[in-house]
Design a protein around this nucleic acid. Sequence first.
DNA 1: ACCTGAACACCGTTCAAGT
DNA 2: ACCTGAACACCGTTCAAGT
Lengths: 196, 196
Amino acid sequence: MAAAGGRHRRADVVDVALRVLDAYGLADLSMRRLAAELGVQPSALYHHFANKQLLLAAVADELLARGRAARGDEPRPDDWAERVAAVCAELRDSMLAYRDGAELVATVRAYGLGAAVPERELDEALRSAGLEPETAAVARRALLHYVFGHVADEQTHLQASAAGAIEDAPRASSDFELGLSLVIDGTRSRLNSAQL
Amino acid sequence: MAAAGGRHRRADVVDVALRVLDAYGLADLSMRRLAAELGVQPSALYHHFANKQLLLAAVADELLARGRAARGDEPRPDDWAERVAAVCAELRDSMLAYRDGAELVATVRAYGLGAAVPERELDEALRSAGLEPETAAVARRALLHYVFGHVADEQTHLQASAAGAIEDAPRASSDFELGLSLVIDGTRSRLNSAQL
DNA sequence: ACCTGAACACCGTTCAAGT
DNA sequence: ACCTGAACACCGTTCAAGT
């Protein structure tokens, strides 16, 4: 699988990086380890990416693209609130599909280097509800902070219980929807008071 | 200030760690740099803390304790929603007082090693509103994800504009309250539907 | 109780050079 | 276009030993 000694293209590097991420976690996704897994010297990676941050941005974008592809061609709901919930659920599923996915995407987004697609989709849904651009931006940020924080917590607990320890209350998947509906309901109340 | 060559107590180490954090950021708060700043060998730190995670937990707890002390003896509001807002505002102010404060506290909380005080205060306020324990827990997590995410973003942008670059829209402090009120309003709606 | 000195097994990145 | 080899300036942690 390591294809020791071959030459690679950007897409190969990203693909192997996602496998290393899923197998060993973000902390062990080092340039040196990734190079070893590719059968190549660490310095070879700098032919494909100027630095590690840009590599991680490409990995995060690929992770999100795969999550989007996994959804298939199901269209987004018409209702803005359902559309917001669907975008957040797809983002969560995408990140849950790879170990430390939430930490990766949140880090990349903090750098401002990628992972911009869910942002745009949320903005569209919130504006379609009739929110002012500034209010939509506030709601969008609150939603994303919630999703990243919640899924990062989920993955931390997944790792902790996978590494043995105590199986402390598996935390149902409905927990995600409950917290999300809090933020959506708060956003809806903002909408009503502006329209009446 | 480095008191080169002296012997130290836990509290000295934590104090200098907070100064290193504020001056150079979390990424540069290494055991080796901290030791150098204390005028001591890196291995000496392991007399005071078993590992870096536990050191960071102590630093985060001290940061929060100082934020609480800065508030003085102003009592919490009686109204639950105002109390929630006050706890979140104090948490934000505490973290904003040190560079990368939000990243530090969020990391420590993810390890489950400290920073538990704001959690308890939020839980108390939400239960006093009449929420079921499970609903209170969902709201508490949503609130904390929002606060950590928002303040981490604020500090990222503070660093970016401090390091020069463009002064892209200073992002008013009221932005924090706006997003927070979204989550609080969502929580309140949950309360009404349960009580009527 | 608090620290030194030396070591182990790592990092990200640069750069001249090779094919 | 893609990679090697060697180096630079770092990491966290352990451990025997010193005072």
